[in-house]
Amino acid sequence: MEKIIVEVMPKPEILDPQGRAIQGVFNRDGHELVLGVRQGKRFEISVNGPITDELLDEIEELAANVLSNPIIETYAIYADEGDGE
């Protein structure tokens, strides 16, 4: 079974409260070198059949409109190169 990976991140200019709070705890606990944390989401989408350009386009459509909120998030999409069969 093939997999397509979609990663969704808050846009760089958008405040990421979660990342900020995590960074704050790291700094409090003495990890002074941590300058920033941003938190995103990773989706692993299993697909039936080989990963073609058409299929990637189809999933990209979903990534752009469903998995991410284009107003506040960006996404990256790529074929999983992990466990080949």
């Binding site: 409260p17 979660q18 709070a21 995590i22 705890v25 606990d29 938190q39």
Partner: peptide
Amino acid sequence: SYGDYLRAGALASV
């Protein structure tokens, strides 16, 4: 606590 960020309770637990 900590806005439930990361996972609920996770940041408070440290």
